[in-house]
Design a protein around this nucleic acid. Structure first.
Lengths: 115, 115
DNA sequence: ATTGTATATCGACATTCATCAATATAGATA
DNA sequence: TATCTATATTGATGAATGTCGATATACAAT
């Protein structure tokens, strides 16, 4: 099935926007949030997010990322896919290169949820 | 070796207090933060944190937690240990019961790091 | 001491995951 | 078309992890 994205859309986790809970979350919400948190809970992916944050024009292509991470190109590509599926980074193809950039609102959601 | 704790102390991650970075984090910092994030990135543990947050007097014992989570007592005990090792909850023995409560400053650190 | 209850640890199992080499795909250029 | 480069996918492998039953430990109360 081409064109099907596995990205978790914001609407899927209705509870994580305002974080105005008055009672404990249930299993379904916990699983949805855990999916996003798992995407962040990896050293390589934390480095990727950090590099993107401080990159000129807040973006970078895969070829700029393998060397600072010390990982192979397939592995870096894999990590970027995990981040993209979680909605934490976006991908834009320009010529032969794939440019990745942060989706800041997604990290805002994470922080809100932890309040 | 009795009395040895595996808790990650705040001092161990010198960079996560103010979150005033000006350059990308290195692998060591990323690994330290990933350890704490991994502790949070699990549905059962997110539920535990949430239940503790809304519990009367912000604490609960294991026997109060198995039923809402639908998991066995050893499994809940295991998850609480993971959270305690990450410094996210504290444990206090009172009689036969072990009372767990949140360590809010630890969650503050997580949020700061994601800024 | 014995019994009972609450919690922790152990051992095992199935699943997930990070990683790489090999290969496939996409796009640019000749 | 053919070729070159950048990125994505596949397949395999070893490590980490969530879960439970069985057992051990800690504490209270007979």
């Amino acid at each position: 099935m081409a064109g099907v994205t596995k990205e978790l859309l914001l609407e899927d986790i209705s509870v994580c926007a305002p974080a105005n809970h008055t009672e404990p979350i249930d299993r379904a919400v916990a699983e949805a949030m855990a999916t996003i948190l798992k995407a962040v809970a990896d050293p390589a992916r934390l480095q990727l997010l950090s590099i993107l944050k401080y990159a000129p024009s807040q973006e970078a292509c895969v070829c700029d990322l393998t060397e600072p991470l010390g990982l192979s190109q397939p592995t870096v590509s894999h990590h970027l896919k995990v981040l993209a599926d979680a909605g934490l980074v976006s991908r834009e193809r320009r010529g032969s290169w794939a440019w990745f950039s942060l989706v800041p609102v997604r990290l805002d959601e994470l922080r809100s949820f932890l309040e």
